[in-house]
Amino acid sequence: MRGYGDVHPTVAELRVGYLPVMLPHPITGELTEAGEVLMTECEVVATYQGDDNKAAPTFTLGYGACFGHNEVKAISMAILDRALQKGMKDGPENPSEDPEFVLLHVDGIDSMGFASHYKMPHYVTFQSDMDRLRTTQQKQEANHE
């Protein structure tokens, strides 16, 4: 969107519903329904992709699924999934196609962790920064004289 992985996907499937939770039975080991959980899932179809090797062009697919009733989240995941697959295939052309960038920065804990770190004291590193700033300023002044 807006030039960073341009797609306007067509929503092929968007569903909200209960899915069974299957667990192995503790005695028989057979899969048994233990309950159900509300899920949203989405599949998108995006613009076709050509191939340098002259293979026939195809549409591309993306899939997203999340707990609860959350359509926008499922659609967003599907778009990102499609972007990441393209990135894996052709190499990332922009951040949304780079798995390292997307997966490490959309995770709630990982994305928040470092912003809260800035609350901690930084006297020592700041003292060290001051040393570099003063030295380079002095050198620049000396050069101008």
Binding site: V124, T125, Q127, D129, T135, N143
Partner: peptide, 25 residues
């Protein structure tokens, strides 16, 4: 006219890997 890295200074260990020695001065 100066190396401006103040802390986390890149340091070569045992002649091969360069580490970030954490934000020590």
């Amino acid at each position: 006219d100066e190396i401006t890295i103040s802390h986390r200074y890149p340091t070569r260990i045992n002649g091969h890997y360069i580490i970030d020695p954490s934000p020590i001065p």
